[in-house]
Amino acid sequence: MPSESSTVPTAPPRPSDQATQDLITVSNLRKRFGDTEVLRGIDLTIQRGEMVALTGRSGSGKSTLLHIIGGLDYRQGGHSYEGKVELLGHDIAQLTDAALSALRNRHIGFVFQAFHLLAHLSCLDNVLLPNAFAASPLGQAEAEQRAQLALERVGLGDKRRSRPSELSGGQKQRVAIARALLFRPTLLLCDEPTGNLDDYTGQQIIELFQELHRDGLTLLLVTHEPRVAQATTRLVRLQSGRIVETEEPAP
């Protein structure tokens, strides 16, 4: 993990990653839950620097696709899908649990609709959580400095000692984004990030994502909100487990 910089915690692509512009390549992806086929042959490529919205009705398979791409659909014995998902050049089905966990830790940030902050930890400790599981964790001082910068980046520099219960929904989501940014990931995966927020707060979060995108971060957002989709550079619409439309929203 790079530790040379203590500025804004977003990252340009690493030199080794520049060999390919394709950050995510999904080929003929199929996924079943029991008798129900949720994903029916998805083919999708996302390049570095893109900000892609994944939209569709409830049950269309958006979140499932996001989880698979993020390596979260993994249980003892391997993955439970068919097809191929390449992330940063790695076929994630071929990675061990430890390797996949390290990939998530260093290169992927997650933002969820329900925020998923740990209630017993302060904001700073929530942001520091990925460092606890890093193969080569940052030193305490450096990690705290970086977490503080991440909190300042999302406008919550003064909330480091606050507990999640003391924050509003928008603030919680900002803490979750700061947590996702701690290790300056290559990719930010967001599952309905504004789903629990009011319009105003949601708009602020969207603007924050756009800022991060301008700084070079690749984002994939699952959303059913048109305004989020409008803020992206590409829109992928799913219906009944299939990609039915890909478009680039008008500026």
Partner: peptide, 16 residues
């Protein structure tokens, strides 16, 4: 469960 899921999402392995 959610807490453990978050830990896994931010990089905790099964061993962790």
């Amino acid at each position: 469960r959610h807490e453990l899921g978050v830990m896994r999402a931010v990089g905790a392995s099964q061993r962790d």
